[in-house]
Design a protein around this nucleic acid. Structure first.
Lengths: 185, 185
DNA sequence: GCTCTTACTATACGAATGTTCAGCAAGGAG
DNA sequence: CTCCTTGCTGAACATTCGTATAGTAAGAGC
């Protein structure tokens, strides 16, 4: 599958390794196939991006809806902190800043991601009788996740998802109450 | 100056625009000059990175040392939130994940940046009789700054440095006390 | 049987990439 | 004056890039 091969290329060598040659060699397909299926390299990149975002959305969307403490644990889950994921997303972020089409797609996805986090925070506050600005709090939570994620890119040994989660919890608990109760991991 | 031209190229088109042709055209120099001065394109990129980091270090290092509340304001300063700065740094982050030499340089710089933040937090806590893990708190502060910075990349209108600062303050104040007192902006 | 569509291959092409290198102009030392 | 260094140029180089295109193989519809 071309999308899978594209993801792997991004994960191995960043945006520089995302070339027709590389991808088709990895997918064991001919060089023309990308143009045939996706129109152009950019078309494939868009598909690759969607494939990369899907697991993030699944992370926060489940039925029944996650309680906020469990959602927090998922957001800071180990998967996101792998080296491949790091390279994939840093490459994509670099594209967002430059490629308006891709940025638009990301805005859409980010919007629904943030909405899910916001809803969980609202539910949490209602259940515990708290009064906070859920939208701002959701932005803060996502900022913390992304920020710690960037930090572990610099220092993969000194930093891991468990430490990031703990730090985030200790920042959030004064405002949201205890967050370590597990409903369903 | 080649370094300045390189920065501008990164700021305009990300890592894709960081090519010998582009840079030399912008610097009004011949294509051979980069190899002559920096050995290779990678050599120039390293120099460009250092030039990009310098203002960040100056941000937190001053004489006399900044108090933490003022430092926080500087960290969330407007300059970092410009579109050019965004593109420059996202391009560099993408390289960190892939280029070990550059990552090593960034680790070094990040270390001294974090140390400055940590020192300010320690001083703050000592002065106010607080007891916190300054190292972890410094990591959290930096994570918040970077995370909000990423978010405003997605949504430049709905997000700015003032809002990010306010959100960070409201997260930190329960643990560090009031942070809005200004000693010297 | 024939034709049309679909999925895919393989080659060719021009434009760009980064690096190498011979050479040039200027200026100081002897 | 000659010699040597230094800072820089610009053409040439082999690769590699993304795309376009002609061609092949398989299958469905009739």
């Amino acid at each position: 599958m071309l999308v899978k091969a594209g993801l792997e290329c991004l994960g191995e060598g960043g945006i520089t390794a995302f070339t027709i040659d590389n991808i088709c060699k990895k997918a064991e397909a001919s060089r023309g196939l990308i143009a045939h299926h996706f129109g152009s390299k950019d078309g494939l990149l868009a598909a690759v991006y969607e494939a990369a975002y899907e697991p993030m959305l699944q992370e926060v969307n489940s039925d029944p809806p996650l309680k906020f403490p469990s959602m927090l644990k998922r957001i800071f889950g180990v998967e996101s902190y792998s080296v491949e994921n790091l390279r994939i997303w840093l490459a994509l972020w670099g594209e967002f800043a430059v490629n308006p089409k891709l940025r638009a797609a990301h805005q859409r996805n980010y919007g629904s991601y943030k909405a899910a986090v916001e809803a969980a925070i609202e539910e949490h506050c209602f259940a515990h009788g708290l009064k906070v600005d859920a939208a701002a709090m959701a932005a803060s939570v996502i900022a913390l996740a992304d920020g710690f994620w960037l930090e572990q890119c610099i220092d993969p040994e000194g930093f891991d998802s468990a430490r990031a989660l703990a730090a985030a919890q200790s920042l959030l608990e004064p405002l949201l109450g205890k967050l370590e109760d597990a409903d369903e991991s």
